[in-house]
Design a protein around this nucleic acid. Sequence first.
DNA 1: TAGTCAATGTCGGGG
DNA 2: CCCCGACGTTGACTA
Lengths: 235, 235
Amino acid sequence: MIREQLVAPSPTDLTAFLLRHTRTRDCLVQVAGLAEVTYQGRAASTADVGSYLVLLKRDGSLQIHAPKGVKPMNWQPRTDEITARVEDGQCVLLASRRSRVEQVRVVFLEAQLAQALELSEEAGFVLSGSEAQMQDALARHPDLIEPGLRVLNRELLVESGGIDLYAQDAVSQLARYVASVQRMVGSVVVRGILAAPSITTPARAQLEGRGFEFREVQALPAVVSASTQPGLFEA
Amino acid sequence: MIREQLVAPSPTDLTAFLLRHTRTRDCLVQVAGLAEVTYQGRAASTADVGSYLVLLKRDGSLQIHAPKGVKPMNWQPRTDEITARVEDGQCVLLASRRSRVEQVRVVFLEAQLAQALELSEEAGFVLSGSEAQMQDALARHPDLIEPGLRVLNRELLVESGGIDLYAQDAVSQLARYVASVQRMVGSVVVRGILAAPSITTPARAQLEGRGFEFREVQALPAVVSASTQPGLFEA
DNA sequence: TAGTCAATGTCGGGG
DNA sequence: CCCCGACGTTGACTA
């Protein structure tokens, strides 16, 4: 799985290494070492000389990691062209895009490690808990909001945006929705319940000020202990 | 700069390695190999067995990279606790957060490579082209919007939000601003100019419908050729 | 291809 | 600690 590894390669060797693997694009390429990084495109950035970790993936994406944070210091999502060359005795890596004109330039002052790894094809990956899934699950199992709740008109509920948990103005949206339903049903009492995994303090105050309720729905089973209510996405 | 490197370590060795380095948190730790990853927290996800690259940074952040994309397949921004242990003869890495309860679990079925790299302290990093810088630059050099433009009252211009290039409703905001200035200056003609790096088609239509103008301001010097106008952030 | 919108958004600043 | 807002947001979906 380690296709190739160079320890402290010379600029020439590193350049050749990069060219070899970026041409085939069949490996995940990494370089760690002292470098200087600049970016020009939608914005511009400069990173002083420091030790960074550079990742080149098979899809042509590039990312340069500083010692902290999940987010790379610099990146390029999908490059049209990646090249390496020797400039002034140093290996320079250029990654650029044409559609949106931008470029990342890495000057390696001292590479400590370069490696090419074979990663197998993408394996199956399933994510649950997105808004779409949540809407669907709540519409199917409204008794997760409160036992006994039934959906009288699912189309109305979903289409009118009655379930909109992430909207910034969820409270006023709820108010509008409640008002419109109230008009339709006449004298029957209409409650407004905002069901969400969480709520901010100001939002809660506003909600209760309007006489509405908040109901926490756990989208997923708790990590640590058994959940007190069934998770939405278990089955 | 390579503090330690293990090639195809046993589960026991890998566990010890991970414990050693996560305890000190002074290195960037990498493991590449066959693994299975699950996440539970704000959402939940499962990744089938595949070969991934795991990165552990000094700040406790974790990311697991699949062969494609800038975005990690799984991640954890800043963990409260990272532990490793042997379970059923396999090394298991657990990264969890307490404030927001969530956890990433990596089961290494076959590690190919584990390494601990010393990255120097964060080096200087400067990004230019952000909204704040742009506001400032435009206030200082209004003639970038149109030669001859002068700022009559910078306080008013900046404080009233007169320059607000990223607001979703920039057009209506501009309208309000123009109206308020018009009231103040009386009979003098007031033009509304939206100066931004780009504009969407619908926004432009709305803008021109109200009799306002759009002026493209290049925030930065072009990558390829000499820019036709001086960049905002050059000096 | 361009516009729109969710995201395990991440990250940093301010109360 | 929580709330708020920017971001080179990215990425997926849709007209």
